[in-house]
Nucleic acid binder design. Structure first.
Lengths: 117, 117
DNA sequence: TCGTCTGTTTAGGTGTCACTTTACACTCGA
DNA sequence: TCGAGTGTAAAGTGACACCTAAACAGACGA
């Protein structure tokens, strides 16, 4: 079940075309071959590695974390954070799982505050 | 730089021996060959796949998230949670990064409370 | 000294990921 | 009609994840 995955390619193709960037040009900026990008955009190949996804995000003006999620990945920076304190972070994420966006934003603000002092 | 990794094998060997479980017995319970487990325990092979790590954790009585971290991994369940709301979760984790254990515990409690209502 | 434990060495093996190269087919303006 | 641009098809590659089977060496009790 890779529903999220299936749409990554279609999404970036749409955004690329909206920005009127050629496939070869985009491929060059990302640092991959045009052939490969073509397959990725038609979801024949899975999304590329994290660094490539980040470059794509920058080019099409999307949030990197969001695009990584669409690619079925999580920023390695975030998994690093979790690995530093696995138990607390795991508890936390499970607790947070069902919350609304507002509740989460509130918690993030509290975290910022706790940090600031 | 796989410092965390290097110690996974040594750690589970120590715990296994403390519990007086033979290598072959352990291997059987986990569902791998004794050969493989031997190499893993001497850190000649990287830690096994997530499900195997979980079984090891259960056998030696360790927290699965902690052992997964030692194995250089994060529970796929947790990355799933992040992928559902990447922006909020990313903001949050970055905000939480520098906090003390107490601050984090406090936030987790608040999350629980927000959820409960 | 034989059988049976223990862990270890050697020597693979398969599958997946993340790509590349080469060659091709189409369209369109000059 | 040509050449310069678009995207695409087919095949292959190198590295790594994740493991296995067969054989062996040493200790230990009967």
């Amino acid at each position: 079940m890779k529903v999220g995955r299936e749409k990554f390619g279609a999404f970036i193709r749409r955004e690329r075309e909206a920005k009127e960037i050629g496939l070869r040009e985009m491929a060059k900026k990302i640092g991959v071959s045009p052939t490969y990008l073509s397959k990725v955009e038609r979801d024949e190949f899975p999304p590329p590695a994290e660094d490539k996804v980040r470059k794509i995000a920058a080019i099409i003006g999307q949030d990197a974390d969001e695009l990584l999620a669409l690619a079925g990945r999580v920023a390695s920076e975030l998994t690093d954070i979790i690995r530093e304190r696995p138990r607390e972070m795991a508890d936390f994420l499970r607790a947070v799982k069902g919350l609304t966006a507002e509740d989460m934003a509130r918690l993030a603000r509290q975290a910022q505050k706790a940090k600031g002092k």
